[in-house]
Nucleic acid binder design. Structure first.
Lengths: 215, 215
DNA sequence: GACTTGCTATCTGTGATATTTAATCACAGA
DNA sequence: TCTGTGATTAAATATCACAGATAGCAAGTC
């Protein structure tokens, strides 16, 4: 049985809390492809009844982070080369749009805020992949664009990618990759207002994050 | 395996049925921006209890076809120029990808099947916009690509666009636009294997469908 | 008389629980 | 090893209880 460390929730907006708790688990790579989840189990772990968990889970299914099996079980999608490849091209396309919108609307303060996200990151080789900072960096950037259409789609793509994150975290080689190199490149390009360089850095970063998945 | 082919029964999943019923309504332009819906009302109309409707509605919210208002009401999103513009660029980007995948995998039979979709449409000016055929044509095409990642995203984009469809249907000028011109262009390009022409036709068609929304 | 204020009746989504229905598993008999 | 059966378990749906929000109306104020 999967369902790793998930903290219990406080008693307001149970559905949302349940959703965010599960989503966070995905962005940390806590779920492995093929894991089977049960509503009862999740409800018990989160300390609420099945109803809010059911709705949180429904949303995750709609976003592609979980799938319904024919036997009405819930599963983290199995790894699938085609799927990974589709996620890559979709992320390249949508995040390029989100980057463009961010650059259209960005202020110097925004660039500074983005730089802050990377502050204090040790850039030490050999550490665990810094998934949380990586996520925060990208979404701080995309939020500047402020699109109610693009952002949810990009979030869903990351969520689906998150199901495979577990495969990456497990690989010892994963920690040898310098994680924030392209982020700093991107930051410089944004500071200089160099659109082409920014796109190149973003593409490189997204491709980097799929390195271990695309055989 | 047992002797004769017996078609498997389709699962009577109330939740799914409710979802598809509502989604169909969107693709026909049945909802107008700003419409307020209630769970009890929908449940009564669909002849089921609130629970399956709730989950169908939750999914529509996740897909952006409905929004939660601060006062916990369910609403079809108001028209919003920024949002419409974002929908346009997102559709252009994602459907271009879906078209590429379809062309990579397409057989002559597929082209024929696609042609069949347009068979029997009168191409008569002055008729109601042929929304259903339009939808079917695009998705028959994208299904050839068969991406579990791209298709749901494109569906969600159409669903959000569907909330604005009502605004278009109401305009008398809308029926003056020749609806399937670009579809036939696209079909010819697919038959000839001309990738650039296919993309040009698709872009033209998507832009066409936003004509009345982008002031 | 027009406008505010405050109360109430009602409507809505939310979460919990009970009920129904389907899927799985273990086991007995071939 | 296979097949059917019944017990067990879980999910899907229905129903219930409740809290927040709203609309309507009546009393009070300028």
């Amino acid at each position: 049985m999967a369902a790793p460390d998930i903290a219990p929730l406080d008693q307001t907006k149970l559905r949302e809390n349940a959703y965010f708790a599960l989503r966070d688990a995905f962005t940390r790579g806590a779920f492995a492809p093929g894991d089977v989840l049960t509503l009862r189990d999740l409800a018990a772990k989160l300390g609420v009844s099945m109803t809010p968990v059911r709705e949180a889970v429904r949303r995750l299914v709609a976003e592609g982070a979980l799938v319904d099996t024919p036997s009405r079980k819930l599963m983290v999608p199995e790894f699938d080369q085609r799927r990974a490849s589709d996620l890559l091209v979709a992320r390249l396309a949508m995040e390029a749009l989100a980057l463009d919108q961010a650059m259209d609307r960005m202020s110097p303060d925004d660039v500074e805020a983005l730089r802050q996200v990377l502050d204090g990151v040790p850039e030490s080789p050999g550490a665990m992949p810094d998934l949380v900072t990586n996520h925060e960096f990208h979404f701080t950037l995309y939020r500047i664009g402020g699109s109610e259409v693009l952002l949810p789609i990009v979030e869903a793509l990351w969520l689906q990618y998150g199901a495979y994150l577990n495969l990456i975290v497990m690989k010892p080689e994963a920690s040898t990759i310098p994680e924030h190199v392209h982020h700093f490149e991107l930051l410089d390009a944004l500071g200089a207002g160099d659109r082409d360089a920014a796109h190149a850095a973003l593409r490189a970063d997204i491709n980097r994050s799929f390195t271990f998945l695309m055989s």
